[in-house]
Design a binder for these strands. Structure first.
Lengths: 343, 343
DNA sequence: ATGAAAGCGCTAACAT
DNA sequence: ATGTTAGCGCTTTCAT
């Protein structure tokens, strides 16, 4: 455990007992009224609520949660770097949480900081959240184990994972497959795939397999050189553009994320390669970045907000069971914009 | 108070008493050891820590906080919309929090959802956070009052505010002044100001006054028509570009945020107006968006990360005093990129 | 160095 | 409809 130096003294004075005394009631009655549980007359209730308001009473959640031996807040953890789609994800989550009267506390970590992530997870466990959502994060197996051991449901949302957790995401094989198919249908011949690690990254691997499958069905060869590795970042896109311009010619590229694709677009631009005239581009994600680039980017658009919504629904559905959460696949669509040939 | 329907049963079994029993100690000793407080032999400590690990013990923070009558977590609330600079802000905050061994819980609200914001603030109060940071949010006076009443320090970071809270931000008058000055020095004559409300928005007003001051000193008239209102969004930039193209000619524009400026850039592009050839552009904020646009955008670059760092430092410095936090101004700089004339 | 005991503020049977 | 009582799991004097 941590060597805390106590810092914040709790200065919030008003407690239930104070209200009880003023109202001439027992604390139990006040508690019931304030929580709308059990029986009480609406008349006294009014009085109590008034008093609570007057003296500036706020429930002490530590005490409440402790006594109740439960709570209704779940945790969300994510890294706010590189990728751009946490916004709709969060939107979906917060929306559903609100309608389900759940509280959510969020913590943000650094990408690839296993130690930091572990600390966050421990913190969440100490707070006894009833579930933990990982956004655009691949928790390590060791973290999963900790969570399992602590009997806390975990759910990865926004991307698939090979570890022993349930997840909610698009079908990445299909994303790779259909993006490729789309380009082939447009008549592209040499199709690059850029911005993710197709060997070590699980999502990358799935998409790569879809990509290969589509090529194979079209009797096209999947030359190794067509794939350029990266980490979903803008920078990955920039370097990939250089690569495709100087070392390996392509007539279209699939960008692993909107950031990668923007990097590709800018990289090509800087090198004097015209999109879509000389090379076509389709992005994966479909966030607002696609609308805010020039030309606007054609994309495989994922429904992140729905993923968020579904994520908290899954938690609710599992309320009291300890069953393993099932993996959920959310549909995506292809939106044609201006980085691919018009037909 | 809220009508909770209890949802998450706390299934985490191990408690200090269990460790105590196994170790043949009292709970008091175990508590001391686990918290590194008081006296104990390192020998037994080792044993205790081992046991804790073995049985998968995690401190119950509700119990701990309740007993201690204090805690060391502070809250951060922001809206993740429109504007783009929360990332460095958060980075600064998390970094400093980590070095100060503080926990932070984050909650995200919808912009302009006063009711939702109030709910979040109440939640934070119930959790007895010792301080609350508002990122890119202007809390209403009523929310400030609630916080004051509850004796919880509040701090607005990333933008100035006219309400009765301290804040950490750049000097917005100077931002307006120097951005304008910069353009004047470059030889621009008709300078637009776009993307914020210069009457109702406090930040907007400050910048506007700086803008006017600079124009005045250069003996230039601040024609009303040169200012185009907005809400810091990409869309504001788009509409402003149309306005400046069709209704009010300018030779340079100051964009109220990077999003606005990107909108301006794209809007001009779509209308066939060339930047910087026909119209110059300087953005305010200087996030990575400025590097990721083509052309890259000249900007007034604010130091958001430092603001975050300073924000939590301020909290710490105030530890036990109830003094009003002073307002802090963070320096900014102008970065010349490619949307303004070269000299 | 360790233990006993009280109490943090609240909730939940179980009375009445 | 309201009160009594016994905790929830932990921390913290105060003893020993």
């Amino acid at each position: 455990m941590d060597q805390n130096n106590y810092i914040g003294a709790m200065t919030l004075k008003a407690k239930i007992a104070d209200i009880a005394k003023i109202a001439g009631l027992s604390v139990a009655s006040v508690s019931r009224i304030l929580n709308g549980r059990g029986r009480y007359s609406e008349e006294t209730a009014k009085r109590v609520r008034q008093i609570a308001d007057d003296i500036g009473y706020y429930k002490n959640r530590s005490a409440s949660d402790l006594a109740r031996q439960s709570n209704n807040t779940f945790g969300v953890v994510y890294t706010n770097s590189e990728t751009h789609f946490s916004e709709p994800l969060i939107k979906g989550i917060m929306g559903q949480a609100a309608t389900d009267k759940l509280d959510v506390i969020i913590m943000i970590g650094k990408r690839d900081d296993e130690q930091g992530l572990t600390k966050i997870v421990q913190d969440m466990i100490e707070r006894r959240v009833f579930g933990l959502l990982f956004l655009s994060i691949q928790p390590s197996q060791s973290i999963i184990d900790i969570l399992n051991h602590a009997n806390i449901r975990a759910l990865v949302v926004g991307s698939a994972t090979e570890h022993d957790v349930s997840y909610i995401s698009s079908d990445d094989f299909q994303i790779g497959y259909q993006a490729t198919q789309f380009l082939i249908d447009k008549g592209y011949q040499r199709i690059g795939l850029a911005g993710m690690d197709v060997q070590r990254d699980y999502v990358g691997l799935q998409r790569y397999q879809g990509y290969r499958q589509a090529l194979k069905e079209a009797n096209m060869k999947a030359a190794e050189g067509l794939v350029h590795s990266g980490n979903f970042s803008y920078h990955s896109g920039i370097t990939a553009a250089t690569y495709y311009t100087n070392e390996q010619s392509v007539d279209a590229v699939i960008g692993a994320s909107d950031e990668v694709s923007l990097g590709l677009l800018n990289g090509f631009h800087d090198l004097g390669v015209q999109v879509p005239k000389q090379v076509g581009l389709i992005s994966i994600d479909g966030t607002e970045l696609c609308e805010q680039s020039r030309p606007k980017m054609t994309s495989v658009t994922q429904n992140f907000q729905l993923m968020g919504t579904r994520a908290v629904r899954e938690f609710m559905a599992l309320e009291d069971s300890h069953n393993k959460i099932e993996t959920v696949t959310i549909p995506f669509e292809i939106e044609t914009r201006n980085t691919t040939k018009q037909d």
